[in-house]
Amino acid sequence: MIRALRYVGQAAVLAAFVAAVGFFSGNPSFRHFPEGEALLKVSFSHGGDRKVECRKRTPEELAELAANMRSALDCPRERVELRFEIDLDGEPLYQALLPPAGLAGDGPSRVYERFALPAGRHVLDLRLRDSRRSEGFDHVARRAVEFDAGQSVAVDFRGGEGFIIR
């Protein structure tokens, strides 16, 4: 009798164990993203202009260099930081100065941001400065996008194409 009770107890413990494993393996459910909203992702990797313009080396300077180093132009590696702004329906949504990557500051600037927006039609104004100018922007775009609930829309930037919606 006691042995039978022990078997029942063992079965009960193991059943409770696997029941807990089975339950918490997928429950309770979790709402990751609010209902009725959409996601805007903005991400690109883009290198700005050089911080200092290339300069032509003088014949004297070239003569001082080793034969294999005699490049006609002296181009410092460091790049400018990018000025990037987004307006959503005429209101500022994001503004940032994006520094160049790398220890020498010669890599591309990068951004990855995400914004939850109410579903519906929205107008995005995108502005990017990637040159040495101190005022204004080099790339400007206005995009009207229809955001469905739960939709994920990505804004990317490519040097030759400008801003693209993916």
Binding site: G22, F24, N27, S29, R31, F33, L39, G150, Q151, S152
Partner: peptide, 24 residues
């Protein structure tokens, strides 16, 4: 009794909203 199943296929154009996490 409770076979492991998948969610709907991934779609990077949509945001997963309600998820059945493996809490472990």
């Amino acid at each position: 009794v409770v076979p492991a199943t998948s969610h709907a296929p991934a779609d990077l154009a949509m945001v997963p909203t309600v998820l059945n996490l493996d809490w472990f």
